[in-house]
């Protein structure tokens, strides 16, 4: 009842010629609602990412999912000169160390990519691209600018030689059957060859230019495809990935990113 009185009072003060609503109400409600929506969304996103990083035992879809930590499974973590190891683990000047974002064994998480076992020349090219700005990422640009070119080469080679089994599983709710078709057969009507035609028969990459996709975090894969789709990543040789990503719908990207996360990473049988 008190409330009614107040609003009656309130209305009495208002200029009669003016539209009879409370002018400051609709906008704050809308803004507050938005803030709430955003923060809930943020919290959910955080929770889901937090879940994938820490829930290494979870996924039923990947029977080989490791129950041990990446550092105990990875090999070659120490096979580099002391200078390179120092660079990796302690960073340099103000630069953050690589493991602070990419994980102790280069296993990555969510939208920070796995580096372990990736094609060496590809990693090096990316570091150069972050450096010359053709690939745009604020944190990596900051990190890379603190490094000399020989250090970039050494870091690329260091991460490339770390064999590490896949520790990922689908997280995006993509259609795995559709993902498999895209990965193995492509969608030629859209000029999308099979991903495996360029990225290797099991998605393990082809030296020197084609990165491995198997074992990569599905969020990261999805984000990269989305960036090419939107024109926000521009460093693919001959703009190959630009054309391919632009032909994919968001559902296709989810599907293929998730499917690639189901692949085991077999240790490579060296050719003789």
């Amino acid at each position: 009842m008190k409330r009614r009185e107040k609003s009656v009072n309130h209305i009495a003060q208002v200029n009669e010629n003016f539209e009879p609503w409370e002018p400051n109400q609709p906008i704050p409600i809308f803004v507050i609602a938005l803030v709430f929506a955003l923060s809930i969304w943020g919290a959910l996103t955080y929770l889901s990412e937090f879940g994938t990083v820490h829930d290494k035992t979870g996924p039923e879809t990947s029977p080989a999912a490791p129950s041990t930590s990446p550092t105990t499974e990875a090999q070659g973590l120490e096979s580099a000169s002391p200078e390179v190891l120092k660079l990796v683990y302690s960073g340099k000047d103000n630069m953050w160390s690589c493991p602070s974002c990419h994980g102790a064994a280069g296993e990555g998480s969510a939208s920070t990519p796995r580096l372990a076992g990736q094609v060496a020349d590809y990693l090096f090219k990316q570091l150069e691209d972050f450096h010359n700005g053709s690939r745009d990422d604020a944190s990596m640009a900051y990190v890379v600018d603190a490094l000399r070119v020989d250090e970039r080469r050494a870091l690329a080679d260091y991460y490339a030689q770390i064999p590490l089994p896949s520790g990922v599983a689908p997280t995006l709710g993509g259609d795995l059957d559709r993902g498999q078709i895209l990965a193995e057969a492509g969608d030629w009507e859209q000029n999308v060859p099979a991903c495996f035609q360029c990225h290797g028969g099991n998605g393990e990459g082809v030296e020197p230019s084609f990165p491995g996709l198997a074992g990569q975090h599905p969020q990261y894969t999805f984000v990269q495809l989305a960036r090419w789709h939107a024109g926000a990543r521009g460093n693919s040789p001959q703009a190959l990935m630009d054309g391919i990503s632009q032909a994919l719908t968001p559902n296709d990207m989810r599907a293929v990113a998730d499917y690639l996360a189901t692949l085991p990473l077999e240790p490579v049988q060296q050719a003789h």
Partner: peptide
């Protein structure tokens, strides 16, 4: 605030 929260949820 409560109303806004509920509305936020609904919007979401």
């Amino acid at each position: 605030l409560l109303k806004a929260g509920a509305l936020g949820l609904v919007l979401f």
